[in-house]
Design a protein around this nucleic acid. Structure first.
Lengths: 133, 133
DNA sequence: ACAAATGGTACTTATATGGTATCATTAATA
DNA sequence: TATTAATGATACCATATAAGTACCATTTGT
């Protein structure tokens, strides 16, 4: 199983790339050239990041993207939330009828706790942390 | 996103059910009746658990399943491994060419560490833990 | 012999992931 | 002002995984 999807992975790479080029405008062409990532897919990803406020975009001739905030403000967990959604615990919703306990259920309780620990840890990791080798 | 799939979830529920009926033989009919889980799917799940050595099965007339070991020996993480595979970090394999760093990559390193923390925690949780309210 | 269970396997369906294509819009520049 | 190079928005396609079913063979108690 996989804690991370490709979306999130690519997003992180692209953002790190931009983090190393602060002030410069970066286009998907640049990213494709330097990171060898599929351009149309990358566009979709960067558009999402723009919508979420992590990137500023400029259309037109020398258009492209720039970071909307310093790398220290972008957390790994934010990217995961954007591209993978919140952690949800095998959607209890649909199981409501079979698991009346929900809140009390020891299985849920335990998993929820493990999940929280993971999230708390990931909350502490920003792109800036990943940039210093 | 989901740390847990339905397979794993159902498996845990079924095993907990059996944990409360030690010595008794439990059939998928019993489980369907009491837990309201789809029988054919449950069969597949229990068959896998049998293959992995967590259940003993008896065919024939009063056939069914019993736990092959005490609930204290069955860890949540084992169920996840059976039904969801090992944690794998957005399969670096395919990305080898774009990410030569692999071992050194700060993104991988960080995620690997977070993952390890999660697994270590889940390793500590057995079905027995979930049985005491 | 028959009924009630699992073993094994192949199949179907639903959903999520990964990725492409297209057209509209914007902006610089010749 | 026409062209070109970029993103915005959206719809679409392909593949993989998850979720679930169906079927036939085998075993076993009555």
């Amino acid at each position: 199983m996989n804690l991370f999807t490709r979306n999130t992975d690519y997003a992180a790479r692209a953002l790190l790339y931009m983090g190393g080029r602060v002030g410069q405008r970066v286009s998907t062409v640049d990213i494709q050239r330097d990171l060898k990532l599929p351009r149309p897919f990358m566009r979709k990803i960067l558009q999402q990041l723009q919508k979420e406020g992590y990137l500023v975009s400029v259309k037109g001739y020398n258009g492209g993207f720039t970071l909307a905030m310093p790398p220290g403000k972008i957390r790994l967990i934010d990217l995961m939330r954007i591209f993978q959604g919140d952690f949800s615990l095998s959607d209890c919703l649909f199981q409501k009828k079979l698991c009346q306990c929900v809140a009390a259920c020891p299985l849920r309780r335990e998993l929820k706790a493990a999940e929280k620990m993971l999230v708390d840890r990931l909350k502490g990791v920003t792109l800036a942390d990943l940039m210093r080798p």
